[in-house]
């Protein structure tokens, strides 16, 4: 009985101790495997603690094994990565918030695909830490200050300087303007409706007039016009012939030796005609002076 007690007590104690150790390791590391060590020197660890996760491209690959504040002011962080995971060369380590409860994690961000991996016990490049609550609060404070300044200015302009009153007046004027525009639009609508009605009437009349036209008469008129046009063409041809003949007659008159040509072109004939006219003028003058010389009228 005593031996049985010893065994049972031993089993329960061993089981409890095993559960405590395995449970703690699982909760802290995500497994029992220790993995290989990598190091990173952060200027600011943001409250990083042992046991917090290490994420490679967003996947949990390990845990923080130790955080040591060094004499030079940097924080040397040791973290362990599962043996099945390889960290590509050029990967940058940063401290990021993990969840909404202030937990932190190390984020390993590869620069790109790389077949070469960082060897165990190497020190990694570090990147800037993600902004913490304090920084975000500071930014929120500056935004709040800016908003406060804007609000004060708006209050000064809109309330103290009577901007709201002006705005109300302007809105009142706008309302009146809108009313007037509404009236104008209604008038335009009435005019447009009247125009539309008139246009409809005109279209109806036109349709009626179009339906009254006799197409056979139009055809006969068109035939007559066509015949007239043909006659005009013939007339034009005759006229051209006559004109050509007249041109040849004039040419002959200008250059030919005939009497018309000589009358037109011979200066002697011109002079004879001129002297003849002068003689006739002198005769006429003389006739007016001495009519009896020329006219001796006797009745009986």
């Amino acid at each position: 009985m005593k031996k049985r007690d010893d065994v049972l007590v031993g089993i329960v104690m061993a089981l409890a101790i095993l559960v405590a150790i395995v449970g703690s390791l699982w909760l802290a590391r995500g497994g029992l495997s220790k993995g290989y060590a990598l190091y990173a020197k952060f200027p600011w660890s943001s409250g990083l603690k042992q046991g917090q996760p290490v994420l490679l491209a967003g996947v949990n690959v390990g845990y923080v094994d130790g955080v040591e504040l060094r004499q030079d002011g940097t924080v040397l962080t040791t973290f362990r990565v599962g043996k099945t995971y390889k960290v590509p060369q050029g990967t940058v380590a940063t401290v990021i918030p993990n969840g909404i409860f202030g937990d932190m994690a190390i984020a390993l961000t590869p620069k790109g695909p790389n077949a070469r991996s960082i060897p165990p016990n190497d020190t990694m490049q570090v990147g800037p830490s993600a902004p913490g609550i304090a920084e975000l609060t500071g930014k929120a404070d500056s935004i709040a200050t800016s908003v406060n300044v804007i609000t004060t200015a708006l209050q000064k302009e809109l309330v103290a300087a009577g901007g709201v009153t002006d705005l109300r007046k302007a809105m009142g004027s706008s309302n009146a303007l809108i009313l007037n525009m509404n009236k104008l639009v209604s008038q335009f609508s009435a005019v447009a409706a009247e125009q539309n009605r008139q246009l409809s009437l005109t279209q109806a009349s036109l349709r009626k007039a179009t339906s009254g036209v006799d197409s056979s008469k139009i055809d006969s008129t068109l035939k007559n016009v066509r015949a007239t046009t043909e006659n005009l063409a013939l007339l034009s041809a005759d006229f051209k012939k006559t004109s050509a003949k007249l041109d040849s007659v004039i040419a002959k008159a200008n250059s030919g030796p005939g009497s018309v040509g000589l009358a037109l072109n011979d200066p002697g004939a011109y002079n004879d005609v001129r002297s003849l006219i002068q003689h006739m003028d002198s005769i006429m003058v003389d006739l007016k002076k001495n009519p009896k010389r020329y006219i001796n009228l006797k009745v009986f």
């Binding site: 405590a20 909760l27 937990d103």
Partner: peptide
């Protein structure tokens, strides 16, 4: 969630 913000002291505290 089970592993979030865990520290071994929580187990020690319970013990």
């Amino acid at each position: 969630g089970l592993r979030l913000a865990f520290s071994a002291f929580q187990i020690i505290y319970s013990i």
